[in-house]
């Protein structure tokens, strides 16, 4: 006779398998999971899904920068240090040294600059099929349902995590991506109310998540990890700053 805890363990494992089959991605490694603490409650089983496609929307240039910063933060949270990331986009503005702040080694990022929408989608799909990569960031204008389905099918085979950043999309139709986010800037956070610009803070909205519950948070990138700014423990952060 198995005990209740054992049974629960088995159910949990089976659920993870079912989720993977449903295209919800496999769970991130246990070690890195803590990095997603602020918004993990939104995901099924409180686990941030990797090996799937996440969609981001942005409308303004400054919002696009915040979204890319947030993507870089997410990617670095589950990337191991030497993972290779492909950054595919049009009119690329990303400044490699700026990524370092979000924990990504800029020399491990390969940028692919293309112009046509079809070329971009082809390149993103090819990249998502390559299981030697850890993540692929694609900056495009619009992502239709058919295209998102193709991308989702590609990652289900390879296990690569895709971040698709739609900047100034014409239509916001449905997509086959596991999540859809919108990141807008929030007033930066300086511990103790010091003058000047502090840590990056974003208003993160999780508009859609499969099998989870959408939500919104005010999140800061403080000391190389995500932190909820509202219920921050100020003394800790200050200490961290003094050490850093």
């Amino acid at each position: 006779m198995q005990t209740t805890t054992e049974k629960r363990e088995i159910v949990k494992r089976l659920q993870a398998k079912v989720d993977a089959l449903q295209g919800l991605g496999r769970p991130a490694d246990v070690i890195s999971r803590t990095g997603f603490a602020p918004f993990e409650s939104a995901f099924p089983d409180r686990i941030f899904p990797v090996g799937t496609v996440h969609e981001f929307l942005s409308d303004e240039s400054s919002h696009a920068a915040c979204t890319n910063g947030f993507i870089a933060g997410l990617a670095s949270t589950f990337l191991n240090k030497d993972g290779i990331c492909l950054w595919i986009g049009r009119n690329r503005k990303v400044f490699p040294p700026g990524l370092k702040h979000f924990g990504i080694t800029p020399s491990n990022v390969i940028f692919v600059d293309l112009h046509k929408q079809n070329d971009l989608l082809w390149a993103i799909e090819e990249a998502l099929k390559c299981d030697a990569l850890t993540s692929v960031v694609g900056e495009i204008r619009d992502l239709g349902f058919t295209e998102s389905r193709r991308l989702q099918l590609a990652v289900e085979k390879s296990g690569v995590t895709g971040f698709i950043h739609c900047h100034k999309p014409k239509a916001k139709g449905s997509s086959a991506c596991t999540t859809r986010w919108r990141v807008t800037p929030g007033m930066s956070f300086t511990p103790g109310g010091l003058p000047g610009i502090g840590h990056a803070v974003w208003d993160v909205e999780l508009l859609k998540v499969r099998n989870g519950k959408p939500g919104s948070w005010r999140i800061g990138w403080i000391g190389n990890r995500f932190m909820t700014v509202d219920d921050r423990r100020l003394p800790d952060t200050l200490e961290e700053l003094q050490v850093g």
Binding site: K100, P106, S107
Partner: peptide
Amino acid sequence: WRTDIARPVH
């Protein structure tokens, strides 16, 4: 890579 001076993402 330098991290002591702030550089923009874009």
